[in-house]
């Protein structure tokens, strides 16, 4: 499988990365080089094989239902580019 220029643009948009027109062709080449490299996996017989879900078999740890966090809105917004009254600000979203 290989990607065309339009696929590169679509993927870039899905990934929310602006890609200029000049960047499309080199990206396309690089992605295709990687896809060509992974192509060999297609030849492997994987019938009846379970996909790996966890590399070390163990039971998932769970938390008790207790409130242990919160009350640190200042820390939460500390690194934010734009805030007001402990809200994060973003360009207006139209629903």
């Amino acid at each position: 499988m290989s990607v065309d220029a339009n696929t590169v643009r679509r993927i870039a948009h899905l990934a929310r990365i602006a890609v200029s027109e000049e960047e499309v062709a080199p990206l396309q080449d690089e992605l295709n080089a990687i896809l060509a490299f992974v192509e060999q996996l297609g030849a492997v017989d994987v019938s009846g094989i379970e996909p790996m879900t966890s590399v070390t078999p163990m039971a998932m740890k769970k938390r008790e239902d207790v409130v242990t966090e919160g009350g640190r809105a200042r820390d939460v917004v500390f690194n934010a580019p734009e805030t007001e009254d402990h809200y994060f600000l973003v360009p207006k979203v139209v629903e």
């Binding site: 734009e82 007001e84 809200y87 994060f88 600000l89 973003v90 360009p91 207006k92 979203v93 139209v94």
Partner: peptide, 13 residues
């Protein structure tokens, strides 16, 4: 997201 606090920005809580 609160959309009515400001004409150009949304507030996220």
């Amino acid at each position: 997201s609160l959309h009515d606090q400001n004409p150009t920005q949304s507030f996220v809580d």
